[in-house]
């Protein structure tokens, strides 16, 4: 990675606690435009909390977050404007059950006046077609499989035309046979050069698609590097131990 692309997300010394649990203990990093960064590590290591801090779903107690140069941890920031630029996909899909598949996609762009109803409808249909959900457009998500729900959730986030995407364990709640279809959609998205941060337990996928891998443990980034470095020649003892347990 050269230093030329601009920094999309920068975090400086983030700290976050839940009660007595000190989940983030000073996390600093820079994510550059067009980069795909995977975050791996043991459960409870702070991966998801870190990701959820990036769009302020969790408020860090200490430290700063800059998104495209603006400090979103500042007091007078309109966080909603920044979130529109940061698509997020959740482990448990969180699709809206009271809306049809198409309405799931169009609600935010129309409500937030990014698109007219007609433009949003057209875009929704083309996005849904891209992930193979066009014929489900008028159904409610209750009738979709887990894989379909997650594809819908990805499309819903893309409909806001974000500058970057955050994935929080997007395949962890899926039946094994549905993991592939969701990873394919993400792979496709990465081809377009979207800046992406993925928290994942899919080591093969992280190795394949990432430009950079962060290994998080005990609230810090214990090691970071290219996939070849992290998976091929990990330097940190904790990284080695973790990888030896998950790469069997």
């Amino acid at each position: 990675m050269t230093n030329s692309p601009k920094v999309m997300i920068e975090t400086v010394n983030l700290h976050k606690s839940f009660g007595k649990l000190h989940v983030l203990q000073g996390v600093s990093n820079q994510i550059r435009e067009g980069e795909c960064v995977s975050i791996i590590g043991p459960s409870g290591g702070g991966k998801s909390t870190y990701l959820r801090c990036l769009n302020m779903l969790e408020t860090p107690e200490e430290g700063q977050i800059f998104v495209e140069g603006v400090e979103i941890t500042g007091k007078k920031v309109d966080i909603n404007k920044h979130r529109q630029k940061m698509g997020m996909v959740f482990q448990l899909f969180n699709v809206f059950p009271h809306l049809t598949v198409k309405e799931n996609v169009t609600m935010a762009p129309v409500l937030l006046k990014k698109k007219t109803r007609q433009e949003a409808d057209e875009m929704a249909m083309s996005l849904l077609a891209r992930v193979g959900l066009a014929e489900k457009a008028d159904e409610h998500p209750g009738r979709l499989s887990g894989g379909q729900k997650q594809r819908l959730a990805i499309v819903r986030a893309l409909a806001m035309e974000p500058d970057m995407m955050l994935f929080d364990e997007p395949t962890s709640a899926l039946d094994p046979e549905m993991v592939g279809e969701v990873l394919n959609v993400i792979r496709d998205l990465l081809k377009s050069g979207m800046t992406t941060v993925i928290v994942t337990h899919e080591m093969g996928f992280a190795k394949e698609v990432s430009d950079r891998v962060l290994f998080m443990d005990k609230g810090v980034i214990a090691e970071e590097g290219s996939p070849a470095e992290i998976f091929g020649n990990p330097q940190n003892a904790r990284t080695r131990e973790f990888l030896s347990k998950v790469l069997y």
Partner: peptide
């Protein structure tokens, strides 16, 4: 998770309450 999803799309608190 419904609230989080709505907020992550950029809806404010009121919109999230009303629409989701």
């Amino acid at each position: 998770g419904q609230t989080e999803a709505a907020r992550s799309l950029g809806l404010n608190g009121g919109q999230t309450m009303l629409r989701v």
